[in-house]
Simulated assay, not measured.
Amino acid sequence: MRRLAPDHVAGLVAPLLTRRTEGPAYARLADALRQAVTDGRLPAGSRLPSERELTDRVDLSRTTVTRAYAELRAQGYLLTRRGSGSVVQVPEVPGGRVDHLLTPSALHADALDLTCTAPAAPAGTREAYQRALDDLGAYLPGTGYYPGGLPVLRERVAEQFTRRGLATTPEQVIITPGALAGVAIAMRALISRRDRVLVETPTYPNAIATVEGAGARIVAHPIDHLHDDWDVTDLGDALQSSGARAAYLIPDFHNPTGALMDGEQRSRTGRLLRTRGVVPVIDESLVDLPLDGQVMPEPLGRHVPDSITVGSASKSLWGGLRVGWMRVPRARMETMAASRLRLDLGVPVL
C-alpha cells in the first residue's frame, strides 16, 4: 500500500483551500481532498497521512482535520481500519453498474473503462449544485414544468451561439436532456416515416438508432477522417440520388473519428444543403474541446439558416448534468416545441 507523504498531500490541497474561502474550514478541507481523489491525484488504495500529521502541514486545527476525515468516510471516500490508517477509495455508484448500454457489467479493480469516453465531474460541480439549491426556493411555488427550459439558461446558450458567430435569441433555444434528445426532437419534426436522412459514416451509433427510431431510412456518406475531408462533391451526389430530406452531421471533432470540417468545406456544404432543400441537424456536442491554440471555424449553422443545431454540457462539463440544447430557426420553433412535448416536459429545474 502506498503511503502518501504529509507534505505531498498538503501541497495538493493548498491551492484548492485558497480558491474556496466560504464555508467552515473542515468542509473546505474535505472538499479539497475529495477533488484530489476524483481527479486521480490522490490514488485509490493509497494511505493518507494521519490526522495529526496533516494538521501540522495545512495550518488547521486537529478538530478541523478530524471532521474533514469523518465527512470523507461518511461519503465513501475513505476507509479507516485500526492499524491500517485512512485509505483512499472511490465510492461505489449507488445501484452498481446496471446500464449495459454505457458500461460493462463488471470491471476488475486494475481495469480502465473505455466504453464511454466521458470525463468525471470537474472541480466546482458540487458548489454549483449548492448555489442552485440556494436559488431553488424561487421556483417551488410554480409547477416546475419548463418545456423550453429555464429562461436564464436559454439566455446563456443564446449568448454562447451569438459569441461564436451564429446570432441567436433566447426564443430560439430549447433546453433538452442532452444533445441526443435534441436530435430525436428534430427528426420527429422534420421527417415522415420512410423518408431518407443522410448521415456520415462512420458516425455516433446512438444517433443512427435515434434517426431510425424516427422512421427514417439511412443514407450513408463516407468521410475521409485522415484528411478531415467531407468530400462535398460526393455529398452533393448522395443527396441528389437519394432525395434525402434531412441530414445528421458532426462537423466539429466528429464522433468517432475526431475530424474537423474546415471553413471552406462548411461554406460549400452549406450552399449545397440550401440548394437541395435539405435541413441539417448539426451536432456540436464536442465543439468546446479544441486543443490549446486551435482556431475553430465558424458554426456550420451560419451557412444554413434553416438548420437545427444541438449541443450539450456532457463533454465540456459533466454527463451527469443531463443538460443539452437546440438552436432552432424562428419559423420552425412552433413545430419543434410541439415535437418536444411528445417526448417529455422538460429537464429538471435544479
Rank of each mutant, 00 (worst) to 15 (best):
D288A: 14
L321Y: 14
I223A: 08
L343D: 01
T176V: 02
H225T: 01
P290K: 07
V90C: 05
T275G: 06
A179K: 04
G178H: 02
R322M: 11
P280M: 02
R19F: 06
Y77A: 08
S61V: 00
T201N: 12
P122K: 11
L48I: 03
L272W: 07
F253I: 05
Q294N: 03
E92G: 03
G96L: 06
V211Q: 05
Q35R: 12
Q130D: 12
E200Q: 12
I174E: 00
A259W: 10
P15A: 08
I218P: 09
E159A: 15
R34D: 06
A181C: 03
D237C: 01
G263H: 14
A109L: 13
H108E: 14
R330S: 13
A32D: 08
T117L: 15
G23E: 01
A74N: 06
E92I: 07
P122W: 10
R34I: 00
Q265F: 11
L190N: 05
T309K: 00
G346M: 07
G11L: 11
A123C: 02
S86N: 08
R330K: 09
R322W: 12
G311T: 03
A214C: 04
I250D: 12
A44E: 09
G270Y: 04
P222A: 09
A238I: 01
L42H: 03
L190P: 06
Q35H: 12
P6N: 05
G277Q: 04
Y204T: 12
P147L: 03
